[in-house]
C-alpha cells in the first residue's frame, strides 16, 4: 500500500454543518458518552475529529463520531476538526478511522461487523479474510465473514443484545434464517433471564426444531401457555424460571428421551438405596454401562453399604426401569 502522508487542515466548524447520522465510515455502536463528555468538559477535545467535505458544503464524519456527539450533547455550537483534502481516497479515510479505533478501544461484535461490511465496498472478501479479520481478532474464514456480514441486517434490539455480549454470536447465525417476528421473540426470551451461551445454543435449536416438526412459527412455540405462564409467574425466581423453561422445551423436543429419564428416576427412587449411593445411567441411555457411585468416609461404612446393596431387592431390574413393559418407551 502507498505510504499514507496525511495532509489535513484544522478548521472550526459549526456542528449543524456536520452530518451526525452514522455514515459510511462509522464503526461505533452501543456506546455511552458520559465518560467522554466529562473528559471533554474538563480538558476539551484532545484529538480533533476528521471530516470530509461533501459536495453540498456539508461534512461527513470520518473519525471522531463519538467526540462530535458528546460535543453536541454538551451544547457546543462549533468544534475544531481536521478536514481532509478534496479527493482524499475514501478507502484511506476508512482505514484512518479503523486504525484510530483499533488503537483506542476494544470493539464489540456489532462494531466489527460494521467494519467488515464497510470494507466490502473497497476490497474483495479474500483480502478481508486474510488481512482484516485477524486484525479484528475474528477467526479468519468465509463462514465467519458471512456471519458478521449478516449481523448489521439484524434488528436493533438483537444487535444491542449481541454488542452487550448477552446474546451468543453462535445463536445469531441461525437467527438470520428466521423472519423478523420470530427472531425478535427469541431475543426477547433470551433477554428475559441470564441464559448461558450454551443454554441459548441448545434452546434455539430445540425451538426451531419443535416449530419445524409441529408446522408452527417460532413465535407460536414461545407464546404457548406452558412457557408464558412460567415467564409471568410471581412464584418463581428468575433462575427457577430459566431452569423450568429449559426443561419444558427439552421435554417437548425430546419426548421419548425425557420420558425414559423420568421413568428411570422414578424406578431408582423407589429403591431404598443406602444414603450417599447413586445409580447413574449412561448419557441418553446410548451406552449399556451404568455406574454406581458410593460416597463413604471409612472402609467400615463402605462395607456396610455394600452389604445393604447386596441384599437390596429390585436392584437386578435397574437397567430396565426406563423401558415400558413392552420393552420400549417410545
Amino acid at each position: 500500500m502507498e505510504k499514507n502522508s496525511l495532509e489535513s487542515t484544522p478548521v472550526k466548524i459549526a456542528l449543524w454543518e456536520i452530518d451526525l447520522d452514522p455514515g459510511r465510515f462509522c464503526m461505533s455502536f452501543d456506546f455511552r458518552l458520559e465518560q467522554l463528555k466529562a473528559s471533554i468538559e474538563e480538558f476539551g477535545v484532545l484529538n480533533p475529529p476528521y471530516l470530509m467535505e461533501d459536495s453540498e458544503s456539508h461534512y461527513t464524519v470520518v473519525a471522531g463520531y463519538r467526540r462530535l456527539l458528546a460535543a453536541k450533547e454538551l451544547g457546543w455550537s462549533d468544534i475544531v476538526c481536521q478536514v481532509l483534502p478534496h479527493g482524499y481516497p475514501p478507502f484511506k479515510a476508512f482505514l484512518l478511522n479503523l486504525y484510530d479505533n483499533l488503537l483506542q478501544r476494544k470493539m464489540n461484535a456489532i462494531e466489527k461487523a460494521m467494519v467488515l461490511q464497510r470494507l466490502t465496498r473497497f476490497v474483495e472478501h479474500e483480502q478481508i479474510i486474510t488481512q482484516f479479520m485477524p486484525m479484528l481478532d475474528i477467526p479468519a474464514n468465509r463462514q465467519t465473514l458471512k456471519l458478521f456480514l449478516g449481523l448489521e441486517g439484524l434488528e436493533e434490539p438483537i444487535r444491542h443484545s449481541i454488542s452487550a455480549e448477552r446474546l451468543s454470536l453462535r445463536v445469531a447465525g441461525p437467527m438470520m434464517s428466521l423472519d423478523t417476528k420470530d427472531r425478535l421473540k427469541i431475543n426477547e426470551l433470551f433477554m428475559a433471564f441470564k441464559w448461558s451461551f450454551n443454554q441459548q445454543w441448545e434452546a434455539i435449536q430445540w425451538i426451531m426444531e419443535i416449530a419445524s416438526r409441529e408446522g408452527r412459527s417460532i413465535e407460536e412455540v414461545i407464546n404457548e401457555r406452558e412457557v408464558t405462564e412460567i415467564l409471568h409467574s410471581n412464584r418463581m425466581s428468575n433462575p427457577q424460571k430459566l431452569k423450568t423453561i429449559v426443561k419444558v422445551l427439552k421435554t417437548r423436543r425430546f419426548p421419548s428421551l425425557m420420558k425414559a429419564e423420568s421413568e428411570f428416576i422414578k424406578g431408582v427412587s423407589a429403591l431404598p438405596l443406602p444414603e450417599r449411593v447413586k445409580i447413574i445411567p449412561p448419557p441418553s441411555f446410548e451406552g449399556i454401562n451404568y455406574r454406581l457411585e458410593i460416597v463413604f468416609t471409612k472402609g467400615k461404612e463402605l462395607k456396610e453399604k455394600l452389604a445393604d446393596l447386596y441384599s437390596l431387592s429390585g436392584l437386578e431390574r435397574v437397567t430396565d426401569f426406563w423401558k415400558t413393559s413392552n420393552g420400549n418407551v417410545h
Partner: peptide
Amino acid sequence: EFVTGLDRKLRYFKP
C-alpha cells in the same frame, strides 16, 4: 429425537 452417540455422532434415541 437425536442424542449424542458413543462416537459423538448424533443418532435417533435408541428405542
